[in-house]
Design a protein around this nucleic acid. Structure first.
Lengths: 260, 260
DNA sequence: CGGATGATTGAGAAGTCTCAACCGTGGTGG
DNA sequence: CCACCACGGTTGAGACTTCTCAATCATCCG
């Protein structure tokens, strides 16, 4: 059981974007430890049906929740960026119904449920922060459902790219208009409910209308408001910087994280 | 503030299908009270952006989580049957991002967060049961995402009808192959991401292939396994009767609810 | 250089949409 | 009691998006 402070501090920073945590709570979180595992692209680290005793924190790379369907096709129902705790829900329901896999080379930290449970039981602020995190994930899933409903491929793609931009920025992994998205078009296809051939054509269309550029695995959004309005993207469903966030002295408190 | 035991007991019965609750916990839940409200079809009872101090228990009828999009079209991201607590997540995030509305004539019970909070703080079993309930709802949302992805309309419809059948049966409101689904085709369209015209054609196709019959607002599934396999429906995502359920003496304990 | 992987292009097929008209039923008012 | 209206469901025809399948191209890496 090794530990690694950097990914945990990214997790704490993310929690702070939705909830206030006092110094004791932050330090307790930063003492979390777990087993580090390195995943290759397309490698699964949690299988559907498995019973787990830990949750997976994405330290680096990109992960997805996926469901194998009969004919070998995959569909993704969530993406996870560094700092995301993939399956806090498994604390309550340890038998998973969907699998988790790495989209690119990804480092994960397996954090035992007993450690998480100890924090939830000992620190009410952490319990609330976890609840908010789960609510945010549920809200994002609802938004994905919405995004797949009665929207042409261009608008779906625009929405997904805006979401990833904002989440990457929140994770301090770039700006919303310029970030690394190291996934194959096939992965985007499986998240958007279209074929990879159509992903190719859709991206071309977004490029040719001047909304974005791509270079190797980087996205450059050249017209954020155009892309957002095409995808009807409104970040409020991400539940960050909303009115629920208890922001008193947060700026001060974040220093605890930054120091590490 | 009036109270009504019957809908709450339906809620408790539903919690028991996923979690064990001892007699004290069940009785504490049954003492929940709230304001009863009667909704007309298409009436909204929670508006997106509102800050709420209560969660809504569906006592009778059918409700949906919805999102208004720019052009007046609606899209649904969840259905709620009697016994469902619509927005437990609002305890952690009281500012809503999506609205709730009645699909048919519906009775709801507005249960104050302070009451729910008291139960969560006082009874660990109830806290766990609520967590499981929220995890189940998140799992259902993921399944909706999946269902909208790369499946023809017949398969989507088949899946939704199977899901509603199982949930209605769990709510003791019919059998999975024969239950009331009092919604307009327009509502199904908004949940399935197709037009109401196509809903009509799709239902015809399901009827003509002998998979189901409809009579007034009732669904009769004539070939359950055919419908389930068409929709690739596997109820495990509903998280009922799964391996996580602590079933020790549950049969006995359920009598506390049935007695009322 | 050669092979593997992923991206692009093309053409025809399939599914779904749009719009408009029509039908059936239940409720309302004369 | 019947005529009418409102609403939701059904039908049809043409248009549009997306899919399928296959071939080609680009890039990276051994």
């Amino acid at each position: 059981m090794s530990s690694d402070a950097a990914p945990v501090s990214r997790f704490v920073r993310r929690l702070l974007s939705r909830s206030a945590l006092d110094v004791n709570e932050q330090q307790a979180l930063l003492r979390l430890s777990g087993q580090v595992a390195q995943m290759r692209p397309n490698q699964e680290f949690v299988t559907a049906g498995e019973t787990v005793d830990h949750s997976c924190l994405v330290a680096d790379g990109l992960a997805a929740r996926h469901d194998q369907v009969g004919d070998g096709a995959r569909r993704y129902t969530a993406f996870y960026v560094p700092g995301d705790m993939c399956d806090l829900d498994s604390m309550a329901c340890p038998t998973t119904v969907s699998g988790l896999l790495a989209l690119t080379a990804t480092t994960i930290l397996r954090v035992p449920h007993v450690e998480l449970r100890r924090l939830v039981d000992g620190y009410p602020g952490i319990a609330l922060a976890f609840s908010r995190d789960k609510a945010a994930e549920a809200s994002i899933r609802a938004e994905w459902t919405r995004n797949l409903t009665r929207k042409p491929a261009r608008a779906r793609m625009a929405h997904l790219i805006c979401e990833m931009g904002v989440r990457m920025e929140l994770a301090a992994l770039g700006a919303r208009h310029s970030f690394r998205l190291d996934v194959a078009q096939q992965h985007l296809a499986e998240a958007l409910g279209i074929t990879s051939v159509h992903v190719s054509r859709t991206l071309q269309s977004l490029r040719s209308t001047g909304l974005l550029r791509t270079k190797s695995q980087r996205i450059f959004i050249e017209d954020w408001s155009g892309l957002a309005s095409l995808g009807r993207f409104d970040s409020s469903y991400l539940l960050v910087d909303g009115p629920d966030r208890a922001f008193s002295q947060n700026k001060l408190r974040q220093r605890v994280v930054r120091r590490l």
